[in-house]
Design a protein around this nucleic acid. Structure first.
Length: 815
DNA sequence: AGCACGCCGACT
DNA sequence: GTCGGCGTGCTC
């Protein structure tokens, strides 16, 4: 194979062709890393995507500089997966590669500047920057751009370097440096021949003159004799005896002691005792056998288990099965931080065979996990969506916990993909089994399960037959009419919370809106403050006494008078969680009230502190946003109150009701986990709204059928496939024209009824970029592929207009 | 993506 | 007059 298609870590379409030099012909394989030149001298680490012989020379390909691996680092299954992602989500392979690899595995050449000696420097004719640079280079022969930045302003660097190149004082080169360094720890040992007793006696005699050296020698010796199999840490010996390197050095020079290094793994593994899992209940056993049945039929599973039904136990059992059959497991979680329980359990059982992979790891830690997976040293990997890209060799089972969670499809980073759906494809490429688990499955998964494309396994009873929480709807309008209301709380809700306080039980109040008030409005002229970067009203945060934009993070001080008319008649509109907290504090003045939202949790250890308070029963009432629906498993919570449930429904998003259902049900799951006395109070102006009625009855089938009917009626997933194209640019007229143009291209190929827009995005400007969007509703049959091809074609046609190249284009498939 | 090349405004 | 802005073009 003479030629190779290489994936580069750049957001460019397709792959690039390189020639394989003769030395590598018999070594190179698909999936290996190579160093290739790209655009002048720059060198990148690419991935071999394909090898082939006949190449029609329409251009002269460059040669591969070096082969970095002895064996493929990206398994075949992963490359298939990348290709699928690229075509399904319309993103470039380079973007996927960038996301998949820790950056230390993607060596990139660095530009550095070198002093040439061929001319004597004429210092008179140099400007200040040129003088600085040359002086610096006289001290250190080579400097990289970052180092130069320390003493020359960023803007002037290029100019300075170019001027000096012209004068032939310096030259510019590219250098590749290995970034990853194993963390090494120094150990000491007495050499074998020194240990022979007659030698030992002589040594000790000789050391009589050097007291400190003798002490050091003896200190090492005693440790080595006490524990011959344990390596002796140098730092430990030094700390104990206050030794210094010079003393060690002379012992080494005399050939009595050796200093050696061992690689330390940055990630500490669990070293405690290993524990067996508990016995399963009848219900759980039944689910297991249903799952086994499904696996035998080569079907994947949707495990729909009410909160605290013990889904985790079932995962553990299936993980065990998979490992016993000699294969490995990937357990995906929406976010690693909040899911302690399963981790602890698995850690106790699998110890060092368990690995973690998530965004909080440093790059080097990621590399270590990569290597361990590659070497097949881990049997279980627990991780967030990025762990889909690890180089598994022997994957037998993928579990996606909380499969409905929107953290699997974040909209604001990289290219868009849904980790849950991607996991299903990955499982297919590996011929691995898959379990999606949730107490509130996404409608899409539920629909698949009803069609038996996923096997539906449900557990509708809590672990230990604990009763499920009861739901009650409070008509706030009626309460208002009867004047039985304080602020946002009906008397009924207040009474119920007081009842809990009397019994020393804890209460959760859910209000899913950050800040104190949505807006500060001038009552005189109607002025409201908009974010300077976005087309969004700033939210008032009382706790920090400022206005915040929840979209770009912009902050500004709280105005005391109207910025427009100077009136001091300012009023707040729209209730945020801070205000609910304030009211709660006022109404239940003796209770300890805490708030849990992104703003309150920003401080270091805020979460840990709050968690402890809750655990110790110090907190009586916890007020929070959707954050409180995750990971708070406390036995003493019995009441969940939702004073303004309507705010969750009145969001313009076709998933709003589904999300409201999921959020309420998830929070409800926190109540009465042990006692079975859980109670959920939902306050609303629309007590007869179908969603609330359905939630109250908790009839899963009815709820999902209702959602499905709605989606069918208004043509939304799972009945159609949605693709959103979002165009962004600093100039509104440009983006307007461009999106109209893209719309017209699309209409040329695709039927009118499939295309909505272009129109301004609900947030017309974000971070100073104007946004327009086009929504595509494609049929969910064989035509989907055809339409998608046509979409490809349209986008290509759009890209040909050079004037629109600077427009940012984000594509959200199945968003 | 990023980097070079090329054509128009505000300054020594 | 220049410096530097960013629109445009290209990368195997």
């Amino acid at each position: 194979m003479q030629f190779a298609q290489i994936i580069l870590p750049l957001n460019l379409k397709g792959t690039f062709t390189y020639k394989v030099p003769a030395d590598f012909l018999d070594k190179i394989e698909v999936g290996m890393r190579v160093l290739v030149p790209f655009r002048g001298k720059k060198i990148y680490t690419g991935i071999v995507a394909e090898l082939f012989d006949n190449f029609e020379e329409t251009f002269v390909p460059k040669e591969i500089i070096n082969l970095l691996d002895n064996q493929p680092i990206v398994p075949k299954q992963q490359l298939d997966f990348w290709n699928w992602l690229s075509s399904y989500y319309l993103c470039n392979l380079g973007e996927i590669y960038r996301l998949a690899f820790p950056s230390s595995l993607k060596l990139e050449s660095e530009t550095y500047v070198r002093l040439l000696s061929e001319r004597t420097i004429d210092w008179q004719n140099l400007d200040a920057n040129e003088t600085y640079l040359l002086q610096a280079l006289e001290v250190r022969q080579m400097l990289n751009l970052q180092e130069i930045e320390a003493f020359i302003p960023k803007k002037e660097i290029i100019k300075t370097i170019n001027a000096l190149i012209d004068e032939r004082y310096i030259s510019v080169d590219e250098k590749i440096t290995e970034k990853y360094k194993a963390k090494e720890i120094a150990y000491l040992k007495i050499n074998d021949e020194a240990l022979v007793s007659e030698n030992l006696a002589i040594i000790l005699l000789k050391l009589d003159k050097a007291k400190k050296q003798k002490d050091l020698f003896l200190s090492i010796l005693s440790k080595q004799i006490d524990n011959p199999d344990n390596p002796i840490r140098k730092s430990l010996v030094f700390d104990e005896g206050n030794f210094v390197n010079q003393q060690l050095k002379s012992l080494i020079e005399k050939g009595w002691v050796t200093e050696y290094y061992l690689e330390k793994h940055r990630i500490d593994s669990y070293e405690g005792e290993i524990e067996e899992i508990e016995e399963l209940t009848e219900n759980q056993k039944k689910s297991i056998s249903e799952i086994n049945q499904a696996f035998e039929e080569a079907k994947n599973v949707l495990l729909h288990g009410v909160t605290s039904s013990g889904k985790t136990h079932i995962y553990l059992e299936k993980i065990e099965d998979c490992i016993n059959s000699g294969q490995n497991v990937l357990l995906l979680l929406p976010e690693i931080a909040l899911t302690k329980q399963i981790t602890i359990r698995l850690e106790k059982k699998y110890g060092k065979k368990l690995g973690f992979y998530h965004n909080k790891l440093t790059d080097f830690e990621r590399v270590e996990v990569w290597r361990k997976i590659k070497k097949n040293e881990l049997q279980i990997l627990i991780g967030t969506r990025n762990s889909l890209f690890l180089p598994y060799e022997n994957l037998g089972l993928i579990i996606v916990d909380e499969e409905h969670d929107s953290a699997y499809r974040p909209r604001d980073q990289n290219f868009f993909f849904n980790a849950k759906d991607s996991a299903m494809m990955l499982a297919e490429f590996y011929h691995a089994k898959l379990i999606l688990g949730s107490a509130t499955p996404s409608l899409e998964s539920y629909d698949l399960a009803m069609k038996d494309k996923l096997r539906y396994v449900s557990i509708n009873e809590r672990f230990g037959k604990v009763d499920l929480p009861k739901f009650e709807i409070i008509d706030i309008k009626e309460a208002q009419n009867q004047k039985k209301i304080v602020g946002n709380f009906s008397q009924k809700m207040i009474d119920e919370i007081n009842l809990q306080l009397d019994q020393k039980k804890q209460t959760i109040i859910l209000h899913n809106r950050r800040g104190y008030a949505n807006v500060i409005e001038c009552e005189t002229c109607g002025h409201v403050t908009y974010c300077s970067n976005c087309d969004v009203v700033m939210t008032y945060h009382k706790a920090s006494n400022e206005l915040k934009c929840h979209y770009c993070g912009h902050r500004s001080g709280k105005p005391t008078t109207c910025p427009s008319c100077n009136s001091d008649n300012l009023n707040t509109k729209g209730v945020g969680v801070e205000q609910i907290e304030e009211e709660t504090q006022k109404i239940f003045s003796d209770a300890e009230v805490d708030r849990m939202d992104v703003d309150a949790m920003r401080k270091k250890f805020a979460y840990e502190k709050l968690y402890e308070k809750l655990e110790n029963g110090e907190t009586d009432i916890l007020v929070g946003t959707q954050m409180i629906s995750k990971g708070l498993d406390f036995d003493n919570i019995e009441l969940v109150a939702i004073p303004k449930a309507d705010s969750m429904i009145h969001v313009q998003d076709f998933r709003a009701e589904e999300r409201a259902y999921q959020l309420i049900t998830q929070v409800a799951g926190r109540a009465g986990r042990v006692s079975g006395n859980g109670k959920i109070l939902i306050q609303t102006y629309n007590p007869s709204h179908s969603v609330f009625e359905l939630i109250k009855n908790q009839n899963v089938k009815e709820i999902y059928n209702y959602f499905l009917d709605e989606r069918k009626k208004f043509l939304y997933p799972p009945f159609v496939k949605l693709i959103m194209i979002e165009l962004k640019h600093r100039k509104e007229d440009k983006i307007n024209r461009a999106s109209q143009f893209l719309g017209s291209i699309l209409r040329k190929y695709i039927p009118e009824e499939c295309i909505l827009g272009p129109e301004k995005s609900p947030i017309a400007r974000l971070n100073n970029l104007y946004q327009y969007q086009i929504l595509l509703k494609f049929p969910k049959n064989k035509n989907y592929k055809i339409y998608k091809e046509l979409l490809f074609k349209s986008l290509d046609e759009f890209d040909e207009i050079t004037a629109y190249k600077s427009i940012r284009k984000d594509i959200f498939v199945d968003f």
